[in-house]
Simulated assay, not measured.
Amino acid sequence: MLITVSGPAGSGKSTAAAALAEALGYEHVSGGDIFRALAADRGLTALELNRLAEEDDEIDRDLDRRQRALARERDDVVLESRLAGWMAGDHADLRLWLDAPPAVRAARIADREEKPIDVAREETRERAASEALRYREYYGIDIEDRSIYDLALNTARIDPDGMVDVLVTFVEAYAPGHDEGKVPIEGVRYEF
């Protein structure tokens, strides 16, 4: 089974995806880890690489190609990134969206990256705007469109263990073969 976990920065998607993969005995693949490694390799922050990606579409396209290949080639994977649900396309069995209010996400990022909350808030806002612009331009994706997701969860008031319990319960309740309600992904341009 291929499960995608998507959501904005600070939503808890990395924590949840890793714990969900562990609970299910699946492999966890993180688009964010790949992106941060690419930034570090270039001596840049994630925000700086995001800005560079606005001018060099090969940065995003390379990451997205990798996600689509993983979705086609592997089983029993939790694929996690902002676009994982979109990039996995019809290969995804379940698409999960995690979110939290901007103030909660900024506080989490500030804590994780040891920076002032106002800096985290502004960087997160800029990064989200940059990414939304690129997703629409490259692929025709409206990142605010939640219609492809099987579950959308506000993580603001759920601790990590509770979040994983909810997700595992949802995955266990999933009935393979019951795709009548599955929303096909149409109108997305996968131009790599």
Rank of each mutant, 00 (worst) to 15 (best):
S11K: 02
E22A: 15
A175E: 15
A156T: 00
I185A: 06
R108E: 04
R65V: 06
E55F: 11
I143H: 03
P8C: 13
D118I: 01
A18Q: 15
Y138M: 05
A9R: 09
G7M: 06
L47P: 06
V119D: 00
Y138A: 03
G177W: 10
E180I: 02
L133A: 14
R51D: 14
Y174V: 11
T155C: 11
E144H: 12
D33L: 13
M1E: 10
Y190W: 01
A175N: 14
K182N: 07
T169I: 06
D76E: 15
D159M: 10
P101G: 02
L70Y: 11
A40I: 07
T124A: 09
S6T: 09
V119Y: 04
R134G: 05
A106V: 04
L20P: 08
E48P: 08
L151P: 08
E122F: 01
Q67N: 12
F35Y: 11
T155L: 03
D57M: 07
P8G: 10
R127M: 09
A120T: 01
P102C: 01
I34M: 09
V77G: 00
V5L: 10
L52H: 09
L70I: 09
R95G: 00
E186V: 06
A152K: 12
A173V: 08
D150A: 10
R121W: 01
D159C: 13
L38M: 12
A84K: 05
E48F: 10
L153E: 00
Y139H: 09
E73D: 10
T4H: 07
G7E: 00
D165K: 13
W86T: 00
L83S: 01
G162E: 14
G181S: 11
E172C: 11
R65I: 07
E55H: 11
D41K: 14
V164E: 04
A23L: 13
S30H: 11
A173R: 15
L70H: 03
Y149P: 00
W97F: 08
D75V: 12
L70M: 13
G85Y: 06
A100Y: 00
G177N: 09
G7V: 04
A128P: 00
E22F: 13
M1S: 11
D62M: 09
L20D: 07
R134N: 01
A175F: 13
S6P: 05
W86I: 05
A40E: 14
R74G: 08
T124M: 03
